[in-house]
Amino acid sequence: MSKSSNILSRGLWKENPVLVLLLGMCPTLAVTTSAYNGLGMGVATLAVLLGSNIFVSLIRSLIPKKVRIPCYIVVIATFVTLVDMILEAFVNNLHSSLGLFIPLIVVNCIILGRAEAFASKNTLGRSALDAVGMGLGFTLTLFALGSVREILGNGTWTLLQYQEILIQLRLLSKSTDPILVMILPPGAFIALGFFIAGMNAIVARKKSKAA
């Protein structure tokens, strides 16, 4: 495995931000009430992560160590505000369903964490790759979590909802009662718990096979 592909892939599995590093729990638990919301949140975070990683990597040698954290936060906040404006202008319904959690991307540990731990020490290309890997890992996890919760809790699977376009599969008939609690806050914790347990089980099995 070449090194750059390693940077890209570790965010997806080995250092998955949600399931392994347990970062960004707040949006993970709060907005994954539908597959589409999870996807939207993931992509928004990916965009911010990519922007901030690239920018931080570019200015890494110009920023004095003592003020680096405030500078990173300003950079991140700028990208978050940009994403917020763009979403509000172009995908208004997603913006209103994600609501407060878009501004809160600023304090998402994944982003400051990658800026501090990786982008501030690495070249532009590698930082961008890292952002894409971590962002994709976050996005896919949120999408999977949102899918499970929406299918169990609402009986539907929403893939796209843009103005008049709505791609939504109904997996449980309308007359069967869905497990409502799955789209309520407790359901987020239960689903995430099973996700992490499953991930650990797979990792443990792999380890025992290798040994």
Binding site: L62, I63, K66, P70, C71, V74, V75, A77, T78
Partner: peptide
Amino acid sequence: LVATLIIVTGVA
């Protein structure tokens, strides 16, 4: 330090 912060926030 001050200059850096001013520039960064200004650009942002």
